[in-house]
Design a protein around this nucleic acid. Structure first.
Lengths: 233, 233
DNA sequence: TTATCCTGGTCATCAGATGACCTGTTGACT
DNA sequence: AGTCAACAGGTCATCTGATGACCAGGATAA
């Protein structure tokens, strides 16, 4: 026998949904100010706390912005308001990290093909800069990790797809921790490996400069294989 | 002249951070029960509302679960707790949709290669079922759209990467609306196009059955090209 | 043993009060 | 006219006491 769920939604969720619908249906446009908490409280006939919690959850979703002393406003939003909720990396196990890495690989390989074709002169300069910094800072793990991250981010930017940049950044964050640890380890036990990383980055850069998508993809593929080996020892 | 921001963080954010740190530092393990709101209110020496808002924001992040009448618990989490916040699709413009589609293409092409290799017998059955439903329900746009979605989701599942499934689902959601609209349109104006979609799906299925990654990828690529054309008229 | 009731602990929500903060206005001073 | 302090009105931020809803587990009755 099937029963219909009577799940009574929590009050603030109902309110949040109602307001969200208004935004979706364009009854509330970006930039508009919502009524004050007191007002809404009366309109929806619920307490102020319920309204407040509803607004807070919408703010967490990025739909609205609450400004102390001013009011609550509908946000203007675009694809870079898409966010990925990643629990802290310390809570992941090896298998999770592997899954994440697999996805990064997909995105990164896709992005570099586009980047090689679409890259501008500016992008090249940025890449050069990152490359240079990384080489300079071989001993400063913090700085070289950041430059590494910047290198990859810049490639994503060159692909001219903002959403892709956002996703790669989010996906790479938990990996970045792992990578930095690995860098520290390598510097102590296996300096030539760092040298290899740099060569791979350089190869990637050259392929992008030549706008050779295929070569770039292969270079990136080799690079990721190296990194993967280093992480999953 | 540069000035340092004196941003004083809101109370509940400080509390939320404090508790999050405890979880990250493993002082609070998954399954543990947090102190009651009253208790925490005393411990942190802030009002109950601040505690409550902090807990709500952590719940939104997926780190904890608040159970009415029982208490608040640290969640066990894994990669499928990674969520992607997508504003409602109606708020996107054409360019945004194009970016999203580009990413979907990347993920989908990557996933199908893995799926073709890793697919189990069960996965094949599911795919058959989705395929069948889609064909049956040519006139029921709702049902056929769902079957379409199921078809792609099942492929992701076959790739044996839970995170990938999650991401693809989230990414495809805003596209699904567009696609359904398109389906309705096609049914009225261009029935053969629906036929073509079905053939493409079938081709994808066959390649997966043969575990031919390359062919599967090509079939999917053709399919996505078709869909893209249909969406961006 | 099993079903029912009771109780203590907890979250959900409300409403009043106070403080902090922002904007715009007014009026004095330069 | 331009600058600035002071003020007022509106709004969010937070605290607090009160009440209801909900759950788990123990006590009780059939």
């Amino acid at each position: 026998m099937q029963y219909k769920k009577i799940k009574q939604k929590k009050l603030y969720e109902q309110v949040a949904d109602a307001i969200e619908q208004q935004i979706i249906k364009k009854k509330l446009l970006p930039g508009d100010r919502l009524d004050s908490v007191e007002q809404l409280s009366k309109s929806y006939d619920v307490g102020r706390s319920a309204i407040r919690e509803a607004l807070m959850s919408l703010q967490a979703k990025g739909l609205i912005e609450i400004r102390h002393g001013e009011g609550t406003f509908v946000r203007h939003l675009s694809t870079d308001d898409i966010t990925i909720q990643m629990p802290p990396s310390s809570l992941f196990n090896k298998k999770d990290i592997k899954e994440i890495f697999e996805i990064r690989e997909l995105l990164e390989l896709g992005v570099i093909e586009k980047a090689a074709v679409r890259r501008s002169q500016d992008d090249l300069l940025c890449l050069q800069h990152a490359l240079h910094t990384m080489n300079e800072a071989l001993t400063d793990h913090q700085a070289s990790s950041e430059a590494d991250f910047l290198f990859h981010t810049t490639i994503a930017k060159a692909a001219d797809n903002q959403l892709l940049v956002t996703m790669l950044e989010h996906i790479s964050k938990p990996l970045a921790d792992q990578i930095q640890q690995t860098r520290v380890l390598l510097a102590a036990t296996n300096p030539p490996a760092l040298e290899q990383l740099h060569k791979e980055h350089a190869a990637i850069y050259e392929a992008i400069e030549k706008q050779d998508g295929k070569a770039a993809k292969e270079a990136m593929s080799r690079h990721l294989a190296t990194v993967e080996k280093m992480i999953f020892i």
